[in-house]
């Protein structure tokens, strides 16, 4: 019986729990993503204006969503690390960053390749596109700081501080770029008050693909955190060997 959430912050507990949880999440992630993308790619009809490019939506929206959610998750676990000093949370933040970076790259690429036939250009300095480019830079800086620092606790502390400060500035940048340019990009794809509502035929596979990308993120974070816990243990063992 688990008495509190925080028990998972214990690395041994985490290894035990994630040991059986990871395969379950991984299988679910693969199945859900496959269903969502196959449904989206093979079994949706073309849009009357966008033609078959509407199918790119099933990659673009879930990856953009996860690119932002990964940063939010990193912000939360960074706070947990700074306040409660649970090593697992610091390592989870480290494990999440490459996934967030990859999601940002996918969102930018699929956006560009959709923009070419639809807007007639690969890239415009539209607020949303610009915000994502800035997010991409934040991920790069965050990962570079992890790479640069030897001592794992110092690295965890400094990257957590960077993540907090970076979040504030990422938010500021978002408002700044909206101020700076009115864009071509349509409003949030799923928002309720948007002028053009999306048809159910697109919405359902999109929801499935979003769930799938979310599960991929969870599975990779679990896997990455396990890797980092092992890496820390190796470091500790090697250090002890050197001492005597």
């Amino acid at each position: 019986m688990v008495s509190s959430y925080w028990e998972y912050a214990n690395p041994t507990r985490f290894m035990q729990t994630s040991g059986w949880l990871l395969p379950v999440v991984a299988v679910l992630a693969v199945v859900t993503t496959a269903v969502g993308l196959i449904w989206g790619f093979f079994f949706t009809s073309d849009d009357f204006r966008q033609g078959s490019t509407v199918k790119i939506l099933f990659l673009h929206v879930p990856s953009a969503l996860m690119a932002i959610n990964a940063w939010l998750m990193m912000l939360v676990v960074s706070l947990i690390w700074l306040i409660r000093r649970h090593h697992v949370s610091a390592l989870a933040a480290k494990a999440a960053a490459p996934v967030g970076l990859a999601m940002t790259v996918i969102a930018l690429f699929t956006g560009a390749i959709w923009g070419q036939p639809m807007w007639g250009t690969w890239w415009v300095w539209d607020p949303r596109l610009t915000s994502f480019l800035v997010l991409f830079l934040f991920y790069l800086g965050y990962l570079a700081l992890w790479q640069a620092i030897e001592d794992p606790d110092t690295a965890a502390d400094l990257t957590a501080v960077l993540c907090l400060v970076g979040s504030v500035f990422a938010l500021l940048s978002r408002y700044a770029v909206f101020f700076w340019s009115q864009g071509l990009h349509q409003g949030p794809s799923l928002s309720l008050q948007a002028g053009e509502r999306m048809d159910m035929a697109y919405k359902l596979p999109l929801y499935v693909a979003m769930t799938g990308f979310g599960l991929i993120f969870v599975a990779l974070v679990l896997l990455g955190t396990r890797t980092e816990i092992r890496a820390r243990r190796i470091k500790a063992l090697v250090a002890r060997e050197r001492m005597g």
Partner: peptide
């Protein structure tokens, strides 16, 4: 590394300043 970390943080200042 310092430039990589600081430049994204400069975005809002640059935008409003140049504007």
């Amino acid at each position: 590394l310092l430039s990589l970390l600081v430049l994204p943080l400069y975005v809002p200042t640059l935008i409003f300043g140049a504007e």
